[in-house]
């Protein structure tokens, strides 16, 4: 219905911008625009995306403020390489180790995907830690970004749990016994420790079923948790806006201007006395007493 007149309103931001005024649009372009309009009318997707992309952020942002995005991209890389590994991996104690051998030695580029997944996990930890350090040293966790920090801290913990659960999946001696130690430590925690350990191990003993447990945690539970918390984290960040570096030139300039104004004011007042700035709440506007009030 409205698709026919959509091309007439001189919209910008679509691929057809350059050709609009010169020639009639190609049918493909027209159909594409119509589709975008159709979806936007029913979801606000384009409007939302435009708001997200073209909203203003402080002019001076530091290179250190790219680390959060980098962590997110590394998570994406882990997801992609992980999906490829999952196509060949067999979560069964009898064949897990062998399937890793197949991936490493036989599958085309398999060694690369596995090596990238392993190195990527370390890289992600490093980048998330650096991101946290930059937030700390920028004071960017302060009002109003406290909850952004809390969701971020949970992301750090979840990322470490990814490392812990993924380590066991290769089913080699080193990882197996390290994980035995880790679950023993869990079991020794007061109160809930034994229960959590039983859930992790799929029983009171570390055994074959433990592998399936860790597989499910590593492939489903924790990634879903990370994706959810990244979504919340990003929502907070776009809602509040990214913090300006505390040493921005703009803030120094604002401060200097303020001081200059102050000095000027001091110079204008006789005998070097400072004018007393008007502080405190403005005097409340008094409503005239009305007859109905009684007293």
């Amino acid at each position: 219905m409205s698709s026919s007149d959509a091309s007439g309103d001189g919209r910008t931001g679509t691929t057809a911008v350059g050709t609009t005024d010169i020639a009639p649009k190609k049918p493909g372009v027209k159909a594409g625009e119509a589709t975008v309009d159709y979806v936007d009318e029913r979801s606000g997707a384009t409007t939302g995306l435009k708001w997200y992309l073209f909203r203003n952020i402080p002019a001076e942002t530091s290179w250190f403020q790219t680390l959060g995005f980098t962590a997110m991209m590394l998570f994406g890389l882990q997801a992609i390489t992980g999906i490829v590994l999952a196509m060949y991996y067999k979560p069964d104690p009898a064949s897990a180790f062998q399937s890793i051998e197949v991936i490493t030695n036989d599958v085309t580029w398999g060694w690369l995907v596995r090596s990238m997944h392993r190195w990527g996990s370390s890289a992600m930890i490093v980048v998330v830690f650096l991101h946290m350090a930059r937030v700390f040293f920028f004071g960017a966790y302060k009002y109003p970004r406290e909850l952004t920090w809390v969701t971020g801290a949970l992301l750090l913990v979840l990322t470490m749990f990814m490392g812990l659960t993924g380590y066991l999946l290769v089913w080699d001696q080193k990882a197996y016994w390290a994980t035995v130690v880790a679950t023993n430590i869990t079991a020794s925690a007061p109160l809930v420790g034994p229960f959590v350990a039983d859930i992790l191990r799929a029983g009171p003993e570390f055994g074959p079923n433990t592998l399936s447990r860790f597989y499910s945690l590593h492939m489903l539970v924790i990634p879903l948790g990370i994706a959810t918390f990244i979504a919340i984290h990003l929502y907070f960040i776009s809602f509040l806006g990214i913090a300006e570096p505390p040493w921005s030139k703009r803030r120094f300039r604002a401060k200097r201007e303020e001081q200059e104004a102050e000095r000027e004011r001091a110079a204008r007042t006789p005998y070097g006395r400072r004018e007393v700035p008007a502080v405190g709440p403005p005097a409340p506007e008094r409503e005239p007493a009305r007859a109905e009030d009684g007293s």
């Binding site: 992309l53 073209f54 909203r55 203003n56 952020i57 990214i242 803030r251």
Partner: peptide, 12 residues
């Protein structure tokens, strides 16, 4: 700061 700022895309 935001008023004197730049758009997220492409500057950040």
């Amino acid at each position: 700061a935001k008023k004197e700022g730049k758009p997220f895309f492409p500057y950040a």
